[in-house]
Write a protein that binds this DNA or RNA. Structure first.
Lengths: 110, 110
DNA sequence: GCACTATATTACTATTTAGGCATATACTTA
DNA sequence: TAAGTATATGCCTAAATAGTAATATAGTGC
């Protein structure tokens, strides 16, 4: 398996993407948006925190290019702009499952 | 495309994995280890920071199940224990490339 | 214009954490 | 045992940031 050498700037960008995804509330927002676009109010109800807090997280996600924003009258709808985040989550899920299985094997072999 | 509903605890675990990967120095360490196992000293030289700092990051990566540790005499070797992190980095890389391309299109259509 | 609703922003606080420095631990060799 | 080397740990400080509360902005309908 061949791999390219990544520059430090590239690693910084990658690290930053992970940082954006490292907040549970933001993952909750993304997970909720997997059903389709939602208003800020919908999301506020879904993630159980204050509206200003949701708006702040939405801005972070939008700035990262993960969400797009669309305003209709008084209501602002957010939607997923970069589906790759679900691939990321799935990869992590599988890895975590594997890790737990490996731990379980310790007991099996006793 | 069907997707399962994730519990908040699951999202916390996923967020935590992203958090571990959200530090450029840790990505540098992982990227260096892609060549194969290295000693703490090797890694300290590779990532250009202090040895205690490297040890601290190595511990975080090991606790997350991403690295494994093996001591030979005086020297401690670390190696990748969870290859999925490279898949993650690659997915992010591709997404970032796509994002930049989309931005570029704005200029093309002028 | 005025009241009402939806979203965003600002200022603040509390928590987390990366990095530096000093030092501890552990292994090796003389 | 003593000196030397490799790695880990503890304490501290500075910077980043999530959350809150108050307020600002912007759109709607009367």
């Amino acid at each position: 398996m061949k791999h390219k050498k990544l520059s430090n700037e590239a690693l910084n960008l990658i690290a930053n993407r992970f940082k954006v995804l490292s907040e549970p509330i933001r993952l909750q927002i993304l997970h909720t948006l997997q059903e389709g676009e939602k208003s800020v109010n919908d999301l506020t109800i879904a993630v159980q925190t204050s509206q200003p807090n949701v708006s702040k997280h939405l801005k972070i996600l939008q700035n990262a290019g993960i969400l797009s924003r669309e305003q209709h009258g008084n209501i602002v709808y957010y939607r997923i702009a970069d589906e790759s985040i679900f691939t990321l989550c799935e990869t992590v899920c599988n890895a975590l499952e594997e890790g737990i299985k490996s731990q379980a094997e310790i007991f099996v072999t006793v």
